[in-house]
Design a binder for these strands. Structure first.
Lengths: 248, 248
DNA sequence: CAGACACCTTGACATGAATCAAAGAGATCC
DNA sequence: GGATCTCTTTGATTCATGTCAAGGTGTCTG
């Protein structure tokens, strides 16, 4: 789910992005019908809290449109983002009833929810759903570990370059082009959200973005519109030894 | 696998710790027999590499005895530990054939392996194994996220206290006592391994351990034998808002 | 249009952790 | 029993990033 590639999913599975992208990779119609029966939609406004860490979470869900963040915080307020939910990403855990992190909508957000109990029952009857979830969870785990390397060992400059490269890559993928050469996209995060993601302060984020611009690695129009003239050069600054890991 | 609690498993499932602890929570004998048929043991000496990142990994496995680490590294050698494998922990991913990290034995190590293909086939036939793996993977994901909070937002002192608290907690759990009051245990990691885990240098680790000792939060006999006189006070220094998260 | 607000940038300074360097403590080996 | 090796501690210094503070930019609202 963390940076899950929207386009890995089967492209011909109907209108609801949820049905095939997040849950049911094989698209068998009986199961889709059953999923349809137990699903419902919820929408949230930008800034609204979806679930608070420690709360009961009586559903699992999939993002239809918008962006949400998963965060954990220390008592004194220091906050770390631990995941980013983009359209088609899945959140929730069959078998656990308390959320281990805060889920917050950063833009207007539409989620497709399944009440946990019926979903679990369906999972028990439909083995390939558990396998699909396992696969997705393993991808997330890989992404989390890649992120641990970033948080523990990269410099501020490398961190920013990494984040921009991921965003660029993701948007290139949405446009179905290979990520190389010139890429243009909009940042879906504030500087503060970026700092929470990268384990930095927002001032440092701002300064490093300025530095990357000064060095010609990116161009900015306004605060959020980013132009990456040379994707490969950016990846080089990011210092990744395996950029591919992020998309599982 | 990361900090998986050995004692969560059903205690009465036979002699091979693998059979029930890591893979088969329900202990049905037919399945255990089948797992027995496809399993084999491999042992490694301390320091030996089990798998190198990017290599083909043709098995999934479970730790019987010893300790192994999962690490990722940048090209210039900066290294981040992304997981710790202790007895009963599971490693490997059905459905992927390349390891996304290095697995290195830090002590002499005995692993119980299952060739990937037969294991996958068995998983397809035995739904609750996929569910069990999903459960374990979700626990690991929670642990990884907890670790992201540590790496991104905690001070060196808090990081060390967190690691010691986890070790203390784990060893208290092995002795079947509740983690509180006085706990005594041996560190299974060198200062360098600890630094790789915590995103610090080994000098900083050494200094902070000295500082915690000076402040009476821990006592040391030799380099590795640790006495925690007051577990709760240590947890307080660690700054965790949810210590429970680590054991899923 | 003015005012308010959220978001972002920049500057000056402080500080926690890294780096570089040296030496101590325990093992192991002949 | 001394030599050697690995692991660890400690000290001096540097540097990257955090902290505190001020001001800029764009958007929305009345």
């Amino acid at each position: 789910m963390l940076f899950q590639d929207v386009h890995q999913a089967h492209p011909a599975c109907g209108d609801c992005p949820i049905r095939h992208r997040a849950v049911c990779a094989r698209c068998e119609t009986d199961e889709l019908r059953e999923l349809d029966r137990i699903k419902y939609y919820r929408s949230f406004e930008a800034g609204q809290t979806v679930v608070w860490s420690g709360d009961h979470m009586e559903f699992v869900a999939s993002v239809v449109t918008g962006v949400a963040t998963l965060t954990r915080a220390l008592e004194d307020g220091r906050t770390q983002m631990v995941g980013l939910l983009l359209p088609s990403d899945f959140v929730g855990r069959p078998g656990r009833d308390r959320a281990p992190f805060n889920v917050i909508a950063t833009t207007d957000l539409l989620m497709c929810c399944f009440r946990r109990k019926p979903f679990e029952e369906m999972m028990a009857r439909t083995p390939h759903i558990a396998q699909r979830l396992l696969e997705m969870t393993l991808s997330e785990l890989d992404a989390a570990r890649e992120w641990m390397l970033l948080l523990g060992r990269k410099t501020a400059r490398e961190k920013i370059a990494s984040l921009l490269a991921i965003m660029a890559r993701r948007d290139a993928a949405l446009g179905l082009s290979a990520p190389s050469g010139r890429i243009v996209f909009d940042l879906p995060l504030t500087r503060e959200a970026m700092s929470d993601y990268l384990g930095l302060t927002l001032e440092t984020v701002s300064r490093q973005i300025t530095a990357l611009r000064r060095d010609g690695l990116i161009e900015l129009q306004g605060k959020r519109h980013v132009i990456v003239p040379d994707y490969d050069r950016l990846v080089e600054v990011a210092g990744d030894d395996s950029d591919g890991g992020f998309f599982g």
